[in-house]
Structures are given as C-alpha cells and as structure tokens.
Write a protein that binds this DNA or RNA. Structure first.
Lengths: 329, 329
DNA sequence: TTGTATGCGTTATCAA
DNA sequence: TTGATAACGCATACAA
C-alpha cells in the first residue's frame, strides 16, 4: 500500500508537503499540488486512517453498539442516528457484540450509543469520560459523561391502561419479555403503576414471562390457558410479537379476540395493522429516538448546540384486538 | 488515556514487558505479570486499536457497506454475516455511505462486503487487492480479488413464471424497481428470459417502473390502470412491497385480486403471509446469503477452508394473490 | 512556500 | 526473562 512517503518521493517533494496537499492547505502552490496529486493518483494512494487517528487522537467516527441484528426493528432507529451523524460530519459504525466489546474498548470511535444488554453498567461507567462520551438507550446510569435517551415507556403504558379500563376491563394480565430488557421491564413497571393509579389490583399469576418472540408468546399463553380456570378479560404485552403469538394461542383454544380476551402490543411494527385481528399497540417514533440520541452525543462531544429537551413521541393506536365490535374492516 | 508507557512506569518494568503481558506471552514470570496487570487495572488502561493496527497492518475487522438502513430487510443478512465473522475471530462493522466512503478507503478493515449501489465499480476495482479482498452482493465484477455472491434471481423468476403460466396466464406484466438495483434488474431480465423460453411475448407497455416502496407500487399501478384499456391477467413484481402497493391500487379500482389480476412478489417479507390477499412470492434465504458472503471473504483473506460452491436457497411460495379460489383461509 | 524532525501507542527485533 | 529501540504512517511545530 502506497504511503505518503511513496507519494512524496514520486512527486519529488517532502512528506510534509505531501501531507499539506492531501489536507488541502492553502499555502501550497498550484504547481506542486498538481505534481503531488498526480503522483498520489498514479500510486493509488489511500490515507491510513489508523495512523491519522493515532496522530490526531480523534477518529470522527461514532459507534452504535447493539446486542444483535435480529430482534426488534432497528432499521428506523439506525436511520435516525445515521442521518444525524452525517449531518455532523462524522461516520457511524454499527456493531454487535456479546462479550469482548473490542471495538468499544480500543478507541476506534470518538463516542458511542449503547443499546446492548450484554454490556455491563460498570464497564460503561469506567469507559465514559470527557473525551469519550456515551449515550445509553437501555439503562439508567448516573454519570456526568453518560446521557440517557430513553423511551417514555410508562407514558405509553398509561395510555394502554386508560384505554382498556375505558373499554370496561378490570382484570388485566401482562405478557413480559426477558428480564434483561430495560424497556421491557419499564413497560411492566409502568403497567403496574397505571393499574395502581386506577385503583386496580394485579395478581402475580397473571404475569406471563416470555422472550419477546412470537413463538414464546404463543407458548406461554397456551400454558397459561391450560393451567388456569379463569382468565383476565385483557392482556397487555410488552411488545407486538408476543401479543400476536398469544392471540394465536387464544384462537387455537377456540376463543375469540377481542370478545373473550382483548390484547394490546407495544412498538407498532408493520405487521400490527395487517394481523388478524389488527393489533392495538403503542407507536414509537424510533427514527426520532435515533436522532435525539445522536444529537445528545454530539452535544457532549462538541459542546455546541443546546440539548433538545425533547421527549420521544409515543401514541396509542386502538385497533381491533382491543375494541369490542368496532373497526372491523 | 493511560498508555502502555504509563502502565510500565507504574509497574516499574519496561514498555516491552508490559506489551508482552498484555498479549499473554508465556515468557513472563507470574510475579511481573501480576504487577503489570494490577497497574493496568488501576490506571484503567485500554489498548489503542489504532496504534496496534498501524503497527501490525491488520485490524481483524471486516466491514459491511450498505447504501442505507431503510429499504430491504437487512436484519437476517446482517445476522448471517455477523455469526460467521465472530466464528472466525473477527469483528464486523456495518456502515452506510453515499459518497465519501471514508471507512472503506482508509484501511480500517481487512476486507469488505459490499451491498451499496453508491459505490462505483471502478472504485472497488482499484481498491481490491491480495491484502484487501472484497465480496460484492450487488454487481458483476471481473477481478481476482473480488468475489461475487449473488442471489439466484433468474432461477427464482423462472419458478414464478412457471407457476403463472400453469395458472393459465398468457399476458404478464412486470413492476420493476429502480434501475440502479442489481437484483431488481436481474429479476427483470430473468422474467423476460423465462417468458421467452415459454414462447410468450412481453409488451414494453406492460413494464411499470417504481422504486421498491409500497407507495410507488400503488402509484404506478394506479396510473397504468387509468391509462390503459386492457390489462395483463397477472403482474410480477420485483419485490413484495411494490406488489402490495399495486394490489391496493387494483382493489381501489374495484377489481379483485387474484380474480381480475393476479400478483406475485419477491423476497417473502414477513408481511406477505398476513397481507390480504396473502402474497405469492419467492422466499430468499438471506441469512444463508450473509453466511456465504462472509465465508467467501474469509477464504480470500486467509486462504483456508475451501470455497463452498453453494447456491443460495430460493423457493417460490404460492399464496392467495396468484391462486384462483384456492388457499383461502 | 516547502522541508526537517518529532511523536502519537504499539509491536517486535535484538541484545542483555 | 526482560529491556532498549526502531518502525508503522501521518500531522504539525518549527526552521529555512
């Protein structure tokens, strides 16, 4: 691989001059500039980012670290971050990691956005610094160099519970995901709190545990229906997929949704509108989430533009799965 | 940020020794090792990847470069690559770029997988080398250091056309995506070739151009129906989203799918089964695609394990949208 | 306007 | 078993 030195030699100038040319310095004469550029082109010169970063102690890259590429729909979230990152003249790399987190540790990026439960709080706490700010999307962390950009899960759950209570439900069950999920658990908390506010009680046996997948929702609901004699008239699920699985289980038992049991989901994935019955759920603006996360990071990174104290937009969307006899199409 | 030198000083040994300890050399006594590790821990030492990469001229990172995070469903594809990359002891970074391609150019990665029409053939051609192999998923390129791992689009289209002809269709239209898409265009070609093989003709006016989105499919079909007096009895779409949009346009005109016009899609996105009518489509094993792409890259990178001459699995799935009076559920 | 020289943090060669 | 040191490719302070 051709280096600056090679280009310099070929152009008959010094390395410094070559470097100046490459960085567009105004001091260089048009003539030398052309010579150098020609030499660079001929040799197929490409700058070495590692050397550059090492020298400048700055990469102009931010990292987005997630736990894996399956699971929730990251597309919009990623898009929201990407757009903002480019707007700030940086690049983004996305990477999944489950134990080493090498790319997070070895100073490849100037800052990072975290949505990865594999990464321990303690690690993030020790990593964050003035020069290496972090934004977390999946935990509560007290640290001057870590900002949180969290979904208003409890706010969403309040809307769900309000809706169900208005529909006349008194006993409402909950389908939770894995306990490792921050959003999942805060949805559960929000649910309980909203029930309490309404003066309704929640029986532990109406709390089902699954793992956010459709099949897990189906299985845990099947087991529940087999075991229990009487059921809640409605179930709230921590995400859409599990709600869909649970609905299938209910239907397989010969019962009807929402007539026998009503359901609500969370996230508003594309499928929700097309599912039968269409799924009542909470629409989350993931792209906005990504934008705000990135903006928050750049604020810490460059101390410019004030922090937008903006809450992520969330909206309950009633559909067939929780509306008795309405909205059939 | 603490460096090896800092750790060395604190531990009272040389930088070299410290480096050995960090890299787990067997030559170091247990005693010095502990001293060094303790010092490193106390200082919160983290290796500097840029310095390491610069020195070793190797990053153990491969890059996956795509055009954006919206659009097709990348999740499975990404997962397929990720799993294989980890299995080979590397890390993967995913990045979207539309003009500078800095991360691709500046030697941050040891090799790359490309699915990004923004990157010109010429650039890839000049970049690829023994030390920097490339795998392309979206183009045909003749270069000893670039491997292609392409979807069997034509094979899939043959199955689609076979099916439609068996269903009795003679005049079949096509909904194409943007011309920049390699897969889209090769699906169109495959479609035309299969028609020709069957002895069927294809009228240019039955070729609609959209951009892979559902709304574009709806709009172009609406326009077509308004303009033309008689229609094909079936339309093949280059992807699922456009097919769904087009179906809506037909339904809005008061016509029935598949009775008046049948439709097929391509990709088998989740929604296809839930759409009404459920969409006949071609299921593409995207995870397998990712795995093969990564394996191919590692083959070039490390000259080990033979190249699997494996074609990506593709299967036509007939559903309601192209079956007359069958499979209603 | 251009060149010389230094150092970024690490690895690895060689010597001790 | 450990230490001194050169080198990786580049940017930049300073000199010319």
């Amino acid at each position: 691989m051709a280096t600056l030195k090679d280009v310099a030699k070929k152009a008959g100038v010094s390395v410094a001059t070559t470097s100046y040319v490459m960085n567009g310095s105004k001091l260089i004469t048009e003539e030398t500039k052309e010579k150098v550029l020609a030499a660079a082109k001929e040799l197929g010169y490409r700058p070495n980012g590692n050397a550059k970063n090492l020298k400048k102690n700055k990469t102009h890259i931010i990292g987005f670290f997630l736990s894996g590429f399956t699971g929730p729909f990251f597309n919009e979230l990623l898009e929201g971050i990407q757009v903002t990152v480019i707007k700030n003249g940086y690049e983004m790399v996305v990477c999944a990691s489950d134990d080493k987190h090498r790319l997070l540790l070895e100073q490849y990026v100037d800052g990072a956005i975290i949505l990865n439960y594999h990464i321990a709080d303690e690690l993030l706490d020790s990593l964050a610094s003035e020069k290496f700010p972090l934004v977390v999307l999946d935990r509560d962390l007290e640290n001057p160099h870590i900002s949180q950009v969290l979904l208003p899960n409890k706010h969403g759950m309040k809307q769900v519970v309000d809706h169900l209570v208005e529909e006349g439900h008194q006993r409402i069950g909950f389908i939770a995901g894995s306990e490792e999920s921050f959003d999942g658990e805060s949805r559960l908390e929000g649910f309980k709190e909203s029930l309490a506010t309404r003066g309704l009680s929640f029986d532990k046996k109406d709390l089902l545990r699954a793992d956010f997948t459709e099949i897990s929702g189906l299985l845990c609901m099947k087991e529940y229906l087999d075991k229990e004699a009487d059921y809640p008239t409605a179930f709230v699920s921590a995400n859409d997929e599990m709600a869909m699985g649970a609905i299938k289980a209910v239907q397989q038992k010969g019962m009807k949704v929402p007539e026998d049991i009503a359901f609500t989901g969370f996230d508003d994935i594309d499928l929700s509108r097309y599912f039968h019955p269409s799924l009542s759920t909470v629409c989350v603006q993931k792209k906005q989430w990504g934008r705000i996360a990135a903006e928050t990071l750049f604020h810490m990174l460059e101390k410019k533009h004030a922090v937008a104290e903006e809450e992520i937009t969330i909206e309950f969307i009633p559909r067939e799965s929780s509306l008795k006899g309405v909205m059939r199409d």
